[in-house]
Amino acid sequence: MSRLTLERYQVWAYLIAIGLGLAVGTAWPGIGPAMETLLWPTLAALLFATFFQVPVLHVRDALRDRRFAGAVMLGNFVLLPLLAWALVEVFEFDLVVRLGVLLVLLVPCTDWFITFSQLGKGDVPRAIAITPLNLVLQLILLPLYLWLMADAQSLGSWNWATLAPAVLIVLVPLAAAVLAERWIQTHPKAERFRDTMGWWPVPLLSLVVLLIAGAQVGTVMEAIDQLQKMVPVFVLFLIAAALLAKGIALQLRLPVEQGRTLAFSMGTRNSFVVLPLALLLPAGWEVAAVVIVVQSLVELFGMVAYVWVIPRLLFK
């Protein structure tokens, strides 16, 4: 089996993992703390494997095509945050769900959108080039977005010191990935290590969602009605993102392949980069992490539709 085949059918791996996690958590309720303990090193390994595929040292390369870079920044960091804010306002979610929706919809994907761009006949070199810019900007802008859009009273009640590990579990793998990239630049034969690590995000993410499902099975069952209401919201986001990408591409006169790549960038979100933050929220906010997992599954099914619709109907 090729790596591309694994990534094409990854949604089924995640569904199986969630089912196993829920079954294990239901059968052995006391296993939750152990699964939470295993979750953190697994999540750190996942983030390292993901960041290692991102050419973080080449942010400037993304700016060489200013028109395409401008389209991505306009879509991902202006229009889609406004769309996310509109959705949470219109649907009037409770505070926890609102935060989960904002966390997952405000940050663009830095990994599997490249795979889906390839499957959807997009411009893969530009997808790769724009990825580090997406990563850097989201890390800078996410706190600002949350300050503007989340409930100020509830955010003020948190003990922010308890969220420090969530920041570290993102920044430490990111720093390790940067060091590994520098190492590969000085030792070209080590490029095989990057290729090997490219196989790991799917199995590691499968293990992450299994551990979350097992540890949070009680939360999932209590919030099942709320979670079902999330699905139409995330479907609406996917549809709107594709249409907004089409509008931007027309206005900026992007080539068809670049328009497809823009659509995949805007349609995919960076769920497991914000997952550590959601997992460390105060007691009573556990649903936020489950919302992020639900969005990831909806998005993956949505990408199956994107791969067919984007090149055949929207960007012919």
Rank of each mutant, 00 (worst) to 15 (best):
S2C: 04
S2H: 04
T5Q: 07
R8I: 03
V11Q: 08
Y14V: 07
I18C: 15
G21Q: 13
W28C: 12
I31E: 06
I31G: 14
G32R: 13
L43D: 12
T50M: 15
T50I: 13
F52Y: 11
P55H: 06
P55N: 14
L57P: 04
A62Q: 05
R64N: 12
R64C: 12
R64K: 10
R66E: 02
A69P: 05
N76E: 04
P81E: 07
P81F: 01
L82W: 03
A84D: 02
A86S: 15
L87V: 02
E89G: 06
F93H: 01
F93D: 00
D94H: 10
L95H: 11
V96Q: 08
G100H: 03
G100Y: 01
L106S: 00
L106F: 00
L119R: 04
L119P: 10
P132M: 11
L133D: 04
L133N: 02
N134F: 00
L135S: 12
P143C: 04
L144F: 14
D151S: 06
Q153H: 06
W158C: 01
T162D: 14
P165T: 03
P165E: 09
V167Q: 01
V172T: 13
A177G: 15
A177L: 11
L179G: 15
A180Q: 14
R182N: 12
Q185S: 04
T186R: 13
P188N: 11
A190S: 15
R194W: 05
D195V: 09
M197P: 15
V202E: 00
L205R: 00
V208H: 04
V209P: 07
V209E: 07
L211E: 10
A213L: 08
G214M: 03
M221W: 12
D225T: 12
Q226H: 06
V235L: 05
I239T: 14
G247V: 10
A249K: 11
Q251A: 08
R253A: 13
E257W: 09
R260P: 08
R260S: 11
T268R: 06
F272C: 01
V273L: 14
L279P: 13
A283C: 00
E286K: 03
A289Y: 07
I292L: 08
V293S: 12
V304K: 11
V307Q: 13
V307S: 15
I310E: 05
K316R: 09
